[in-house]
Nucleic acid binder design. Structure first.
Lengths: 217, 217
DNA sequence: CGGAGTTTTGATCGAGCTCAACGTGGGTGG
DNA sequence: CCACCCACGTTGAGCTCGATCAAAACTCCG
């Protein structure tokens, strides 16, 4: 028990234990661009694993602004909340293919198989870690937020000419709690400083990772 | 498994299961005002339960600003991270008495007793829920943050003439990511609107909860 | 090509920060 | 018991960063 992932990441062994559980019970489902996968406050009957495409988890604040809590890329599990109801809504960013898993089946399995229980624990721990990082992010300046985002995305997908961002400027803005105009301006500034290159709007290449990393402090 | 606390709160049964575990193994330790309990990145060998006084979990950002992640009041458990090392530092706000629990002992117990494992799960789930709320908080205006804080504190301790806040303005500021000056000004404004009364600096009374609750939206 | 959604760019505005000065109250030693 | 003291809190003035508003430019498809 208590899988002790010092990095906060799900490690290989646990991931495969959960994967096995998922493969046993999952069915496949496709979502079109901007299609809702589930809404906040709905009973969390299912959770999901991204096969292809990209998904956003978000909530709409009282004043109508949208806060994106996370982007979910292929291979990642989302919607597996420790509560009975979803806290966030989820939508496909682009056309997306997912595996749909019945939550109860997996939790029943977890009661018998320790490895699965460990994987679930690790997943929540990971989620907590992510959220804490997001919290720290919002206490930084605009440039630092954008740079953190770029570095994070470059870790998760390889940013290159062939491999662009799956999300719009507005999505980035809502993730970083900035306006889309500010995203534009910061990116421009980073390009002028030749820390990045903007091949097209979606294709951003990190030119000087060292400089970028030292900006986030 | 998966204790399903829809409120995100640890429910009675689970709390007592963890309490029993704590009572079996805990020793008592006192900390003086502002004394460090543990530092960020230290191995998380122990976790704690507040008996009396108040504790803050915080981190210091790159630019020297301090972000308080949580205040821990009597009865609450803190330092029980899902990672091998503490993510935050913890200090006593005031003179505080705590129970110190060896983490391994409890996790070993959890491997055998399902109720204890459930309590641990619930604790992390609760922590996640808290952090998510904190995240949403930082996307609101200054007044809304302060009001949210007051309502939260009134839920946790009864704010009254006899029962003041345990923390300074600066602590509140670092929790809400505002300056202490802004805290002062907002409190003043709320008093002028007779939504609250400032008996002394630490003794704040909520006069019109309805108005306050409708401010946070 | 054309048209709608997205991105960029510019100009202005404002919430909250910073810096500085002043007030206050709780604790300590005489 | 009082006076002093020093950390804490309040108040004011000006500034800054990023939001907002407006409009032009680009891009992706039909």
């Amino acid at each position: 028990m208590l899988p002790e992932t010092s990095t906060g990441r799900i490690d290989k062994k646990e991931r495969s234990a959960l994967d096995v559980a998922i493969d046993k019970t999952a069915s496949r489902k496709r979502f079109k661009s901007n299609e809702e996968i589930y809404g906040a406050k709905e009973p969390a009957v299912y959770f999901y694993k991204v096969v292809s495409g990209c998904v956003r988890s978000y909530t709409v604040l009282g004043d109508g602004r949208r806060l994106i809590a996370a982007f979910h890329l292929p291979g990642e599990v989302f919607g597996l909340e420790p509560t009975e109801r979803h806290l966030f809504s989820a939508e496909a960013l682009s056309d997306a293919e997912t595996l749909v898993i019945n939550r109860n089946e997996v939790t029943r399995l977890a009661a018998r198989e320790n490895a699965v229980a460990g994987a679930l624990w690790a997943h929540v721990a990971n989620e907590l870690h992510r959220t804490q990082n997001h919290l720290l992010l919002l206490n930084k300046g605009a440039s630092e937020r954008v740079v953190s985002f770029l570095l994070e995305m470059d870790d998760r997908i390889q940013l290159s000419d062939e491999n662009g961002l799956p999300m719009t400027r507005q999505d980035i803005a809502d993730y970083l709690a900035l306006s889309s105009e500010t995203i534009s301006r910061v990116l421009k500034k980073l390009e002028s400083a030749s820390a990045i290159a903007l091949r097209t709007t979606r294709h951003i290449v990190l030119r000087d990772r060292a400089v970028l990393e030292q900006m986030v402090t």
